[in-house]
Design a protein around this nucleic acid. Structure first.
Lengths: 339, 339
DNA sequence: GCGATCTTTCGAAGCGCTTCGACGATGCGC
DNA sequence: GCGCATCGTCGAAGCGCTTCGAAAGATCGC
């Protein structure tokens, strides 16, 4: 491996000149710089990572804390980890992956050893142990998700409340009168996963506000079987469904409605909101307000890199507005009393 | 942050004594060691990562190269990346995630800058660009998957050939006479993904060897619809199906067979082989020979860590024997002519 | 009781880079 | 023509750790 000393010798200059020529932190004659650059790439020189880290007090590494719960949707979390990594590279950072138990312990370790310049926290619970940890870590940290107590934190997330309100509004405005929400599994909410709870509350509040009949159900297994049955028990005239649930449950919905003679959108309109899978390839594609991993992670990494670069890291909650994608699964209903 | 000098001062010994007391690389009186350890943990001392890397010529970081193809099964790949990370931690290594285009370029970069001590290559294609790269990198590398030209490489993978043979044998031994294989999508094979091809070839060879009627199909979309139709066209008496395909296709199979009046296992036996999803939660659970991410990654990381630690890194292909999990989806058929 | 041999600890030399201060050379104004 | 600022380059001091060689004590054999 070529070192900076080799490049200096080859270019006939001092080590510090090479460093400045490559970093551009001091002015260097064009002629000298060219000689240095030529020597560097002829030798295939790349600076030794740990030497650079040690001297520059910067690792150019971001730790990604991603616990994996038993009820975790692997594909969704993969997307977040990958997008974080991808965006980090655009800022010239690498990412260290911290999973399972190490999602917690690794945060402490990579911050204390200064292995990481900053931390992105994924899969945030309402009452997440990583919240107090982040507070005392003295290492810039951004949460993708919103825990209960956000004091002192920087958080980024889809505006689930807005998505829930918008879903209800769409259906009500289109004349729907009995709206069901298929939420996440009960165990997911019990564990304290943050966004299903936020979505659920906003859904209830908006239904009240709009004065529309509504019901909520949580799937048991991995299909929408039981959920559909329970919704129909409570709302025999069910004409709108909001999905804020997992891919397997959502993808089974059309077929299960079909067994009861219900067709989307003829009999029931459907909106999937705040979900991280695409509904485009479903037999009946649903309108959706996606939870866009790329958007969330890009915003998170931007904030983190700013904080690392010394711009202030003031606590704040950044909520990304939902985007509505129309796939034709919602149609207007005649309001009762209309022809 | 406390440094080793702080610990040395607190314990009243020299820096090198602290280093040796903590690493155990030279003998230290029990009394001195205890004083050092006490000082270290009272100060919350953790060695500065880059300083340690620089001095010790070892980063304790493993790079994980994971390109993401358009037809990639995110959940499956998540499992491999996570398991690699998890097992690496058990060996006291952290993992750097390299995705998308950076799966290639990042390998070069992390090896050249000596950011990584070793590399795990996931999602290997038959004709993978990372194969020649690994050869010239002078950085220990283990492939999880088997490319076409394995000269000079260390590869770990499930023995897909054995899994295919065993699936065919099970069915033939149980009296099945017309066996269909639902493989991966054609585009996946065309791209050169390695294991579907290996599985397919071994399936064909074993069917020939056992002299059983057989057919192969590749799904078009995300269900088994077309596949079942095509298999039945070629094998009207289809009584056994081998699945080496994606989760969505597999999970749709029972329902689609049902629409044709076929029930598993009454009319058709099914074995899922070399698949990375679990069939346990399917409406009809299938017998399976799983592609176990943990087993593959554990073997890969073990080999890699050995290589990093200087044990020789001789090229070799490690094929893990498949494990058969019986879930009752295969039953014996009366052989023609028997009562 | 004295040299030989261990054992335990210390000092110092790096690892390869960044960055600060300084120095010679050049250009400017007056 | 002299002082003064400016520019481009260099030398050296770290960053915090590991590790080698050696010094200082303790132990032993004869």
């Amino acid at each position: 491996m070529a070192t900076i000393a080799d490049v200096a010798q080859a270019a006939g200059v001092s080590i510090s000149t090479v460093s400045y020529a490559l970093s551009g932190k001091r002015s260097i004659t064009a002629e000298t710089r060219d000689r240095v650059l030529a020597a560097a790439d002829q030798l295939g020189y790349l600076p030794h990572a740990s030497a650079r880290m040690l001297a520059a007090h910067r690792s150019h590494i971001i730790a990604v804390s991603e616990p994996v719960h038993p009820d975790t949707d692997d594909a969704a979390h993969m997307a977040f980890a990958m997008q974080t990594t991808r965006v980090a590279r655009e800022h010239n950072y690498d990412t260290l992956l911290l999973v399972h138990d190490d999602a917690f312990e690794g945060m402490r370790r990579s911050a204390a050893t200064q292995l990481a310049d900053g931390i992105v926290v994924l899969d945030v619970d309402v009452d997440d142990a990583r919240v107090p940890l982040a507070r005392k870590l003295a290492c810039p940290t951004v949460f993708v998700g919103v825990p209960a107590d956000t004091a002192g934190l920087v958080c980024v997330d889809l505006d689930f409340e807005a998505a829930a309100r918008q879903a209800v509004d769409r259906l009500v405005d289109a004349g729907h009168t009995q709206i069901g929400l298929i939420s996440h599994r009960q165990e997911t909410l019990t564990r304290g996963s943050n966004f299903p709870i936020r979505f659920l509350r906003a859904f209830l509040a908006q239904c009240e506000a709009r004065g529309v009949r509504h019901a909520v159900t949580h799937p048991n297994g991995h299909t929408a079987d039981g959920s559909v049955r329970r919704l129909l028990e409570q709302l025999p005239g069910l004409d709108g469904i909001v999905l804020n649930t997992t891919a397997d449950v959502a993808s089974s919905l059309s077929a299960i409605l079909a067994t009861r003679g219900l067709e989307v959108p003829r009999d029931v309109s459907v909106i999937a909101a705040g979900v991280s899978f695409t509904t485009a390839r479903f037999a009946v594609p649903f309108d959706t307000m996606p939870l866009d991993a790329h958007a969330s992670c890009a915003a998170a990494v931007d904030l983190l890199v700013q904080a690392i670069d010394g711009a202030e890291h003031t606590p704040r909650i950044v909520l990304l507005p939902p985007t509505y994608i129309d796939r034709g699964s919602v149609i207007a209903r005649a309001t009762p009393g209309s022809p």
